[in-house]
Design a binder for these strands. Structure first.
Lengths: 195, 195
DNA sequence: TAATATAATTAACATTGTTAATATTGTCAA
DNA sequence: TTGACAATATTAACAATGTTAATTATATTA
């Protein structure tokens, strides 16, 4: 990598780090071009020398968060040999990540379709985020003969839709109203699906 | 009602109608104070003589949409005596409404928590919107002895979370990718839950 | 050191929600 | 019918947003 490319790489990273910090803490509505650039130590216009627009920068953050999420899920899934347990632990890790960072859930799932979400690449990342949590466990159940390939796919979708919906309502502070209730509801729904 | 109260009532209705038309058609991001007032035939500042802020006006729209949705669901549910069928038809009507008006789904479920959604009253309306579609059918299954009260509640939540998640991903044009696929997936998931 | 290329900043524009100041309209007594 | 006052609507303005163009500062090279 040339010196100038290294510089460019560093600059983009400054902005990405600043944006991630804001998204994690205060959430999407605070992640304005001016706030991000401020936190990165540059002027707002400088940001546009390194990113086409604000959405591109946010997209980089989504990819980073996704990688972070996957890095949390994988060891949780691999901590057991039991297929059903793999799913339980994977899904719980998935949920816990978004509970810990509501701003990231907001970013992943609640952004207006026409803005960040409309980029099909971002939608792909989000949609796929549940797979590392479920796929290994389901594969195992299939290989053990407990499930057909077809059933496994249906169950993956059930889990995907259900935990997303669950978190969506939890995020709106409706039901369940607290974390204990969330985990209890999650367990019950998962049990209903994989036993 | 006095003459001036009638006037006030009419004015608010003009703004609500304009806002609903925009929300139905172009969606939330187009529903600005200026656009709504324009469509209502008044200046943007006039709006603030009748609503505390834009969120209050949008909230009125949510309530109207909820009533409209319920008016579609009820006859669908009552069109059969079979408990499971009541649920199938109710949920399908619920989904169809939001498929027809993606802007209303966006308004109901995708708005940032800190803005419209943070009003607990609006969150209540949204959360409850699934009940007319499920409750009658579940009640019937309970009264027939097919379900316990407890199971019925769990299933209601399962359905609530699942169809919301399903629609969320469908709205992002991911999976299912078309309406036929959506209905097929919906049927499969409902079958898995109530049979 | 001077000339040039690169990179960062300020200024500016259009758009947003919202408020204050102003203009218009309607009502009613003289 | 006119004049005073209240009610209502409109324009002007503010701060914040994303974004671009013009300008300034910095680095590189001859």
């Amino acid at each position: 990598m040339s010196a100038s490319e290294l510089q460019k790489q560093r600059m983009t990273q400054y902005f990405i780090d600043a944006a991630k910090e804001i998204l994690r803490g205060e959430g999407l509505k605070v992640a304005s071009a001016r706030n991000i650039a401020d936190k990165a130590g540059y002027s707002y216009a400088t940001l546009y020398n390194y990113f086409e627009d604000l959405t591109s920068l946010i997209f980089e953050c989504v990819r980073d968060f996704q990688a972070e999420l996957e890095a949390l899920i994988t060891p949780a899934v691999e901590s057991t040999e039991n297929g059903a347990d793999k799913i339980r632990r994977g899904v719980t890790a998935w949920i816990n990540y978004f509970v810990q960072y509501p701003g990231i859930f907001e970013l992943f799932f609640l952004e207006r379709i026409g803005e960040v979400g409309h980029r099909s690449d971002i939608a792909d990342v989000i949609y796929a985020s549940i797979e590392p949590a479920c796929q290994p466990g389901l594969d195992q159940l299939v290989s053990e003969g407990s499930l057909t390939q077809n059933e496994a796919e249906t169950k993956m979708n059930s889990i995907r839709f259900q935990i997303t919906g669950l978190l969506l309502y939890y995020g709106n502070r409706k039901n369940p109203s607290d974390y204990t209730g969330l985990i209890k509801t999650l367990d019950r729904q998962i049990e209903l699906l994989i036993s």
